[in-house]
Write a protein that binds this DNA or RNA. Structure first.
Lengths: 213, 213
DNA sequence: GAAGTTATGACAGTCGCTGACAAATGACAA
DNA sequence: TTGTCATTTGTCAGCGACTGTCATAACTTC
């Protein structure tokens, strides 16, 4: 399911919008890969899709956004699932479960969507603005997850422990993605595997590494 | 010592350069605080300092950089000190020691520099581009520290544990800064205290939080 | 004080991005 | 089908960040 959005055909208008949206995304990704991110202009993208530049900026917040926006879906899954986890569950277990569902959605993507993941992954390495953008997305998700976690843990506003836990958890996930980039692991299934492996490694080694202080 | 750079007067030329540099930084910070970051144009900054726009971009990589660049000094301290710590020391102890030195440099700043910290701190909250920029700086420092840590720990390239430790450590520091921002703690001394407190809290609680998985 | 190096200014241009208004297009009811 | 309405799109004009180029000015060195 490359997106539960264009499936629910809300009408011709909505369908058309989704079509341009994905056309812009795919064209942008291809151009970015072919000529480089910075060397590609918005004008080239919109010319290829045959829409006006103004329309581009009605769909996306900026050049960076056209490449990264479709990842937001998975952040949302993470947030939603964590919020619905049983409150009695240990925090780290709940986080891991939410991550598992989110990564599962990545793995269940159709061919088209998998191709986008691959392209984006190859693209982000060696494109600092995109790497920075992804970093920002992680941070935004962290804020939302931390709020949910604080409620789960019944923590007061001054209690930093939920923030600490969520932030360090997402950091592990991010490090896993970075590692995949470094080792040129681009297949979504392989990436997913590696993320969960690193979370397991973190659970195994982090307590010891931190408690030596 | 607001910077070990302008102290070592390398000649008239060098002194003049440092003077314009700080003039640009201070003017920018003041304007950003007065009118807002986005509402302030580079033209306004350079007009106030009476240099050309072109000169501005010879000193700084961009609008964001003029506000954040002077923090780089402290990242550098962190890196240098970690590299010089005795290899036998437990990793977390070495990180903590390096952090202590870096934060010590912040506390030992002169009045002028302390004022800059305050301004920047007030500025970053509610200015997403600057917050994102700081996030990026953290990430860059993380990469460098991780490399040093990998060498310290005698870890191979595939071993992610040094990355994991450094990244989670810097995340704790970052969360501490965020907490200061949220609670409007702007005094450098208070910020420093809070960061070290949160690191202590993390050492106390993170192992337990992570090992429950 | 002359020669050489380096910083600065002026100018022109590209590109990302936005506001405003008019034209086109799909939605819906008569 | 047709007319009305809401929404989307294109056009245009403009701002501001940022860069390359080249001449000029400033410091440095001998």
């Amino acid at each position: 399911m490359s997106g539960e959005f264009e499936e629910r055909a809300g009408g011709l208008r909505e369908r058309k919008k989704q079509r341009t949206r994905w056309a812009l995304i795919d064209t942008a990704l291809d151009l970015f890969l072919a000529k480089g991110y910075e060397a590609t202009t918005i004008d080239e993208i919109v010319a290829a899709v045959d829409v006006s530049q103004r329309t581009f900026f009605r769909y996306f917040a900026g050049k960076e956004d056209v490449a990264l926006s479709f990842l937001a879906e998975y952040d949302q899954i993470l947030i939603t699932v964590l919020a619905e986890r049983p409150p009695a569950e240990p925090p780290i277990v709940a986080l891991r479960a939410a991550l598992h569902v989110s990564l599962g959605a990545v793995q269940d993507s159709d061919e088209e969507h998998t191709a986008r993941f691959r392209k984006l992954r190859r693209l982000i390495d060696g494109t600092p603005p995109l790497a920075a953008g992804q970093l920002r997305r992680f941070f935004e998700t962290e804020q939302k997850l931390a709020t949910i976690m604080a409620r789960r843990m019944g923590a007061g506003l001054a209690d930093m422990r939920p923030y600490l836990l969520v932030a360090s958890f997402l950091t592990v996930v991010r490090v896993a993605f970075d590692g995949c980039a470094r080792d040129e692991v681009i297949d979504p299934a392989a990436v997913v595997l590696r993320v969960e492996e690193l979370v397991a490694l973190a659970i195994e080694t982090l307590p010891g590494a931190w408690s030596a202080g």
